[in-house]
């Protein structure tokens, strides 16, 4: 891990010094235990502020549409900036999606591929340790040694500490790479849609009740939307006034409309990075619902979002023999 950090810094320095990119998007140390924060390096002399460890959770692709947006002050021709991103498997999949949707110009983005062993979820670590964890590092056999606020040290198992998204990850290593940083990568998960299958097995009324219970926690801060790399719309449907899709209050029906609308908009695009889940201050289990969309596009159209630059996004394409199972025949 430390080795990868050194390589990443060197790669960033080279890219900046050679003028190949103007900005390297990566991580720096955060202000809280078990946290890092997105970091924008524009000068080779500070490339050493980049860090790489098991806390680099944010999906950095979320910043790209904004960084590649043509500034309002520029009139006429504009050439986009050159930007490098230290990308984990999920970040790279999001970037591929954004390239396909023309939000990121392929020629202007440099993907520094960072193989991933799964990132630590601080909330999970705190819950498993029973109190706030102040330090956490990988120990032997994939386990983690943690120190808690009261000074105790404990050993926690990988699945007690590593984020749920990472435990179910099929693509821990980036699918495309412009600069490769060698390093260890976890084995792809074997069972993927376990939670969706379990949920599908429940009765509809029970599912609806659980869905309502989760959504009722929403305070409409829109952190899920803002943290999502796919949510780059200039004006979100929920904030439009013509037409006015939903009320601004916390009427359950309006909360439903927002979440159904936002999640369904991820159909065929969601890479299950869990940025929305991590961002939610109310711990809404959005993953349980978005997983269904990922499962459906894979089962119905054989499509894995962000796996390749070549295939068409599934909802922009069609086949003559697509499923007709949902059609009502009188």
């Amino acid at each position: 891990m430390h080795d990868m950090e050194t390589k990443l810094r060197k790669a960033a320095k080279d890219l900046l010094e050679s003028g190949k990119v103007e900005t390297v998007v990566g991580f720096q140390n955060g202000s809280l235990p078990l946290r890092t924060r997105p970091h924008f390096v524009r000068d080779a002399s500070v490339a050493d502020t980049l860090v790489w460890n098991r806390f680099c959770t944010n999906n950095l692709a979320a910043y790209l549409p904004r960084l590649f947006e043509k500034p309002a002050s520029v009139r006429g021709q504009w050439s986009p900036p050159k930007i490098a991103v230290a990308a984990k498997g999920c970040d790279a999949r999001s970037i591929i999606g954004l390239i396909k949707e023309h939000q990121v110009p392929r020629g202007s983005v440099v993907i520094i591929a960072m193989p991933c062993q799964g990132m630590v979820d601080p909330r999970k670590a705190d819950a498993a340790a029973g109190e706030a964890v102040t330090d956490c590092h990988a120990g032997a056999d994939g386990a983690f040694e943690v120190t808690t606020v009261s000074g105790r040290t404990r050993t926690l198992q990988r699945d007690q500490v590593v984020a749920e998204a990472c435990l179910g990850c099929l693509h821990p290593a980036p699918a495309i790479a412009d600069v490769k940083v060698e390093g260890p990568s976890q084995a792809p998960a074997a069972e993927r849609f376990a939670r969706a299958r379990e949920f599908e097995a429940m009765a509809p009324a029970q599912r609806w009740e659980l869905f309502l219970k989760e959504i009722a926690k929403c305070i409409r801060c829109y952190a899920c939307r803002q943290a999502c790399p796919n949510c780059y719309c200039k004006s979100c449907f929920i904030e439009q006034s013509k037409p006015n899709w939903a009320g601004a209050g916390d009427d359950p029906s309006d909360l439903l409309l927002f979440h159904i609308g936002r999640m369904f908009h991820q159909a065929g695009r969601c890479v299950e990075c869990d940025a929305c889940v991590r961002a939610c201050p109310m711990h809404i289990d959005l993953r349980l619902f978005t997983q269904k969309l990922v499962k459906d596009v894979e089962e119905l159209f054989g499509y894995v979002p962000g796996a390749s630059l070549d295939d068409m996004p599934p909802l922009c394409a069609f086949q003559s023999d697509d499923s007709e199972s949902f059609i009502t025949h009188p």
């Binding site: 924060r37 997105p38 970091h39 924008f40 979320a62 910043y63 305070i219 409409r220 801060c221 829109y222 952190a223 939307r225 803002q226 943290a227 961002a279 201050p281």
Partner: peptide
């Protein structure tokens, strides 16, 4: 504030 995602967590909490 370059890393600010623009959500309402800070204001709502």
């Amino acid at each position: 504030t370059a890393r600010c995602l623009g959500c309402g967590v800070c204001t709502f909490l």
